[in-house]
Amino acid sequence: MSSTLVVQLVISGILLGGIYALSSIGLTLIFGVMKIVNFAHGEFLMLAMYVSFWLFHWAHLDPYLSMLISVPLFFIIGILTYKVFIKKTIGAPILSQIFVTVGLSIIIENLALLFWSADFRTVSLSYLSRPIILGPFSGLGLEEIIVNKARLIAFILGISLSIAFYLFMRFSYLGKVIRATSQDRTTALLMGINIDRVYTISFAMGILLVGIAGALMIPIYTVHPFVGFEFVLIMFVVVVLGGMGSIVGAVVAGLFIGVVEVFSGFFIGPESKQAVYFLVFIAVLVLKPSGLFGEKGEEELERIEAIGE
């Protein structure tokens, strides 16, 4: 195996991982704060891809610019989803917590099928069509390395946004409030934090992030009603591997899974690559269920109680 190939695969994997990282952060944020797994997260991603697609199709709006619309739109969608569906599941039995979002994912997926049919749709941007060619680096013994522009853009924006979001959570007042709530809800309540508001904003931000991810992904992937399910499975792997609730973990795990996927796709074949990261997933759940960066014991944490009106 030539070193050029290895470098090429690693670069492709990392670029792919940047996308996974960004789309998974919202999921991990929602779990970290309200201890709910949003099984509909992939469907929100799918919606976001469709939004960018239709804006491109009907208004010829560049997908990267369509983010300006997606961001507020998905923030509002997030708030509404929280108010109508998610809020009722806080403190509810585990079955309701899981299946309300499962139900939501079924509804969104099939509404998309109903309205937009199962057609595969793509956005191709002429300025992205030619790849960037790096090298050859004869000093390093490397031949040409090919980098896909759309993936590079998605990676750079995805990672920058992830870092920005991390800094926001770390240093802004709101970020601190959210972290405090996710660490110890009771104490946060005693300190006069409005838990319901924190949950609303966290959920909305989680959806907003996936809204951005959708815009970054539409120049790369085809969108169809079932695309969300494919991605949500990867997101689960990333989030669990990184440690549910950990933003840094999601980024690191996203990059890792990206590389794993590219390598296993290359060596084992594209059909079976899914099996590889699911095995990684099960291994993590068995060996270190708290993930790489998660708080230990999180996987055994008791459910939090309902929000009082």
């Binding site: 201890k35 899981i98 669990v240 997933f281 099960i282 068995v286 996987e299």
Partner: peptide, 23 residues
């Protein structure tokens, strides 16, 4: 193997298991 897993984690582990089986 899922002995220690609670609630959501068990659901996710079984989801992965089911998916591997179908793959």
């Amino acid at each position: 193997i899922c002995f220690r897993l609670r609630s959501h984690y068990f659901a996710l582990a079984t989801l992965a298991f089911g998916q591997v089986a179908s793959i």
